[in-house]
Deep mutational scan, measured.
Amino acid sequence: EQIEAIAKFDYMGRSPRELSFKKGASLLLYHRASEDWWEGRHNGVDGLIPHQYIVVQD
Results as ranks from 00 to 15, higher is better:
residue 23 K to P: 02
residue 18 E to Y: 11
residue 42 H to M: 12
residue 41 R to F: 05
residue 34 S to T: 05
residue 44 G to H: 04
residue 5 A to T: 12
residue 2 Q to D: 15
residue 47 G to P: 00
residue 28 L to P: 03
residue 55 V to P: 02
residue 4 E to D: 10
residue 33 A to F: 13
residue 48 L to Q: 13
residue 25 A to Y: 04
residue 13 G to D: 02
residue 48 L to G: 03
residue 23 K to T: 13
residue 33 A to W: 08
residue 8 K to W: 03
residue 20 S to K: 04
residue 45 V to N: 07
residue 10 D to Q: 09
residue 5 A to V: 13
residue 1 E to S: 08
residue 48 L to E: 04
residue 15 S to F: 10
residue 41 R to M: 09
residue 18 E to D: 11
residue 33 A to E: 07
residue 8 K to D: 07
residue 25 A to M: 13
residue 56 V to T: 10
residue 24 G to W: 03
residue 34 S to F: 05
residue 56 V to N: 09
residue 30 Y to I: 15
residue 11 Y to A: 02
residue 21 F to K: 00
residue 56 V to A: 10
residue 55 V to T: 13
residue 15 S to I: 03
residue 16 P to K: 06
residue 53 Y to M: 11
residue 56 V to K: 12
residue 36 D to Q: 13
residue 30 Y to T: 07
residue 48 L to V: 12
residue 49 I to F: 02
residue 57 Q to G: 11
residue 16 P to T: 09
residue 47 G to Y: 01
residue 13 G to I: 04
residue 12 M to R: 11
residue 24 G to A: 06
residue 18 E to V: 06
residue 26 S to R: 04
residue 13 G to F: 02
residue 50 P to S: 06
residue 25 A to L: 02
residue 20 S to N: 10
residue 37 W to L: 08
residue 39 E to M: 09
residue 29 L to C: 04
residue 8 K to L: 12
residue 37 W to G: 02
residue 45 V to E: 15
residue 49 I to C: 11
residue 15 S to K: 11
residue 14 R to L: 07
residue 54 I to E: 00
residue 31 H to Y: 07
residue 48 L to P: 02
residue 15 S to Q: 11
residue 9 F to R: 11
residue 14 R to M: 09
residue 51 H to K: 11
residue 23 K to V: 06
residue 53 Y to E: 10
residue 47 G to I: 00
residue 57 Q to H: 15
residue 14 R to T: 06
residue 51 H to D: 10
residue 22 K to S: 09
residue 14 R to F: 10
residue 11 Y to M: 03
residue 27 L to P: 00
residue 48 L to I: 13
residue 38 W to H: 04
residue 22 K to P: 13
residue 17 R to L: 11
residue 25 A to W: 04
residue 23 K to G: 09
residue 54 I to A: 08
residue 20 S to T: 08
residue 53 Y to P: 04
residue 58 D to T: 03
residue 54 I to Q: 03
residue 51 H to Y: 05
residue 23 K to I: 07
residue 33 A to P: 08
residue 7 A to T: 08
residue 21 F to S: 01
residue 9 F to I: 14
residue 20 S to F: 03
residue 38 W to C: 02
residue 26 S to E: 15
residue 34 S to W: 04
residue 38 W to K: 01
residue 39 E to Q: 13
residue 30 Y to C: 09
residue 14 R to W: 04
residue 7 A to C: 03
residue 5 A to R: 02
residue 7 A to R: 00
residue 50 P to Y: 14
residue 8 K to Y: 15
residue 13 G to T: 04
residue 13 G to K: 11
residue 51 H to R: 10
residue 27 L to Q: 00
residue 50 P to M: 08
residue 57 Q to V: 12
residue 45 V to Q: 13
residue 37 W to C: 13
residue 22 K to E: 07
residue 34 S to R: 10
residue 43 N to I: 05
residue 42 H to G: 12
residue 15 S to T: 12
residue 1 E to R: 08
residue 38 W to E: 00
residue 30 Y to F: 14
residue 2 Q to R: 13
residue 32 R to C: 03
residue 13 G to R: 09
residue 31 H to C: 06
residue 23 K to Q: 11
residue 42 H to C: 14
residue 39 E to T: 07
residue 52 Q to C: 07
residue 33 A to N: 15
residue 8 K to E: 11
residue 50 P to W: 03
residue 34 S to P: 02
residue 53 Y to L: 08
residue 11 Y to W: 08
residue 30 Y to D: 05
residue 41 R to S: 13
residue 20 S to Q: 05
residue 57 Q to E: 15
residue 31 H to K: 06
residue 42 H to E: 07
residue 55 V to S: 12
residue 43 N to M: 09
residue 26 S to T: 04
residue 2 Q to H: 14
residue 25 A to T: 11
residue 6 I to Q: 13
residue 51 H to N: 13
residue 36 D to N: 10
residue 35 E to R: 05
residue 21 F to T: 01
residue 53 Y to C: 12
residue 43 N to T: 05
residue 17 R to S: 14
residue 40 G to S: 01
residue 12 M to H: 10
residue 18 E to L: 03
residue 43 N to A: 12
residue 51 H to C: 13
residue 20 S to R: 05
residue 46 D to V: 03
residue 58 D to A: 07
residue 13 G to Y: 04
residue 53 Y to S: 12
residue 48 L to F: 08
residue 53 Y to Q: 15
residue 6 I to F: 12
residue 12 M to F: 15
residue 43 N to C: 05
residue 18 E to N: 03
residue 34 S to D: 11
residue 45 V to K: 06
residue 37 W to E: 03
residue 19 L to V: 12
residue 7 A to K: 00
residue 16 P to C: 07
residue 40 G to W: 00
residue 52 Q to M: 10
residue 55 V to A: 11
residue 24 G to V: 00
residue 19 L to N: 06
residue 21 F to C: 00
residue 56 V to C: 14
residue 40 G to D: 00
residue 49 I to M: 03
residue 32 R to T: 04
residue 9 F to E: 15
residue 35 E to G: 12
residue 39 E to C: 06
residue 7 A to Q: 00
residue 55 V to F: 13
residue 31 H to M: 12
residue 36 D to S: 12
residue 48 L to K: 14
residue 55 V to H: 15
residue 24 G to L: 02
residue 20 S to W: 04
residue 18 E to H: 08
residue 19 L to R: 02
residue 42 H to V: 13
residue 17 R to C: 11
residue 25 A to S: 12
residue 38 W to S: 02
residue 22 K to Y: 14
residue 25 A to E: 13
residue 9 F to S: 15
residue 23 K to A: 06
residue 3 I to T: 04
residue 53 Y to H: 14
residue 32 R to W: 05
residue 37 W to F: 03
residue 13 G to S: 09
residue 9 F to K: 12
residue 16 P to G: 12
residue 41 R to V: 12
residue 35 E to Q: 09
residue 27 L to K: 01
residue 7 A to H: 00
residue 30 Y to V: 11
residue 47 G to Q: 01
residue 45 V to W: 07
residue 16 P to N: 05
residue 19 L to A: 04
residue 9 F to A: 14
residue 12 M to D: 13
residue 38 W to R: 01
residue 51 H to S: 08
residue 10 D to R: 05
residue 41 R to D: 05
residue 42 H to T: 06
residue 27 L to C: 08
residue 16 P to A: 14
residue 47 G to A: 02
residue 54 I to P: 01
residue 44 G to I: 03
residue 28 L to W: 06
residue 4 E to G: 08
residue 19 L to C: 14
residue 55 V to E: 14
residue 34 S to A: 10
residue 36 D to M: 12
residue 57 Q to F: 09
residue 3 I to R: 08
residue 55 V to K: 07
residue 20 S to G: 06
residue 20 S to L: 02
residue 8 K to V: 12
residue 29 L to Q: 01
residue 29 L to A: 01
residue 51 H to F: 07
residue 44 G to W: 04
residue 18 E to R: 04
residue 5 A to W: 02
residue 46 D to K: 15
residue 43 N to L: 13
residue 8 K to A: 12
residue 31 H to T: 14
residue 11 Y to T: 02
residue 39 E to H: 13
residue 9 F to T: 15
residue 51 H to P: 05
residue 45 V to Y: 02
residue 56 V to L: 09
residue 50 P to I: 02
residue 19 L to S: 02
residue 25 A to N: 15
residue 31 H to V: 11
residue 21 F to V: 03
residue 58 D to C: 07
residue 55 V to Y: 15
residue 12 M to W: 14
residue 12 M to I: 12
residue 19 L to I: 07
residue 4 E to C: 12
residue 4 E to Q: 08
residue 18 E to F: 09
residue 31 H to A: 10
residue 22 K to V: 14
residue 48 L to W: 06
residue 39 E to P: 00
residue 43 N to P: 01
residue 46 D to N: 11
residue 5 A to D: 01
residue 32 R to L: 09
residue 33 A to H: 08
residue 39 E to L: 08
residue 32 R to G: 02
residue 33 A to S: 13
residue 30 Y to H: 12
residue 10 D to T: 08
residue 6 I to H: 03
residue 36 D to E: 11
residue 50 P to N: 04
residue 49 I to R: 01
residue 53 Y to G: 13
residue 45 V to C: 03
residue 44 G to R: 09
residue 16 P to D: 07
residue 24 G to Q: 05
residue 17 R to I: 04
residue 29 L to V: 09
residue 37 W to A: 04
residue 36 D to F: 15
residue 55 V to C: 07
residue 53 Y to W: 08
residue 40 G to N: 01
residue 32 R to D: 01
residue 54 I to L: 12
residue 34 S to I: 02
residue 10 D to V: 02
residue 39 E to V: 07
residue 11 Y to I: 02
residue 12 M to A: 06
residue 6 I to Y: 10
residue 34 S to E: 11
residue 22 K to F: 14
residue 53 Y to D: 09
residue 41 R to W: 10
residue 6 I to E: 15
residue 13 G to N: 06
residue 35 E to N: 04
residue 45 V to I: 09
residue 27 L to M: 14
residue 52 Q to L: 08
residue 25 A to H: 12
residue 47 G to K: 01
residue 58 D to S: 15
residue 23 K to H: 05
residue 53 Y to A: 14
residue 1 E to W: 02
residue 11 Y to H: 07
residue 21 F to D: 01
residue 23 K to D: 03
residue 28 L to C: 07
